[in-house]
């Protein structure tokens, strides 16, 4: 007998049948719904507060560790490798390179999206290697995206910016 396939005979009172979608709709299967109201207000802290303020001003800010020489983006107040406070703030460019990407056609509720979303991890120019952003790409055909593609941030207008990672609308190909 195959593993997991057992010849079980049911007692006569358990006369089963398959569950249909209507059974669930009609409440024949017992579920209990709970819709919690849990909300948080995360303190951004020293590093991220300044970073978000930078975004509002259209700048990408990073911090530097003099010990290992890394320019860390997004910024933090301490170098996690050297375990010491950072030494200074600096600005990095709003251009970068696609490290990896995905063309996503489905939303979190498993519904088809009207337009696919191209999610990409972007190494930001001026920061140490492999430091950057996960963001989305725009003004590009999904078929034309490739790893290593150079991209540039497309910002919201100054009046629309609010100090959020979405102050950058998306990143578009740098060439043409």
């Amino acid at each position: 007998m195959a593993v997991g396939k057992k010849d079980i005979s049911c007692p006569p009172y358990v006369k089963g049948r398959e569950i249909k979608a209507e059974d669930i709709k009609e409440g024949k299967v017992t579920y209990w719904e709970h819709h919690p109201d849990i909300r948080y207000s995360f303190t951004a802290g020293q590093a991220i507060s300044r970073f978000l303020k930078g975004l509002k001003e259209g700048k990408l800010l990073a911090t530097k560790c003099d010990h290992c020489g890394r320019i860390m983006f997004p910024p933090r107040m301490f170098c996690e490798l050297c375990f010491r406070p950072v030494d200074e703030w600096c600005e990095v460019k709003d251009t970068g390179v696609v490290e990896t990407f995905s063309v996503s056609y489905i939303d979190p509720d498993a519904k088809p999206l009207e337009e696919p979303v191209i999610v990409a991890v972007i190494s930001v120019d001026g920061a140490s290697p492999k430091m950057g952003f996960m963001h989305i790409l725009g003004e590009v055909d999904p078929d034309d995206v490739y790893i290593g593609m150079k991209v540039k941030a497309v910002w919201k207008s100054e009046s629309e910016r609010e100090g959020s990672v979405t102050d950058i609308k998306y990143w578009k190909p740098l060439e043409g």
Binding site: T43, A44, G45, Q46, A47, I48, R76, M77
Partner: peptide, 9 residues
């Protein structure tokens, strides 16, 4: 309250 520091800090 600790409005000046994130939980990581």
């Amino acid at each position: 309250n600790t409005p000046d520091l994130s939980w990581k800090e």
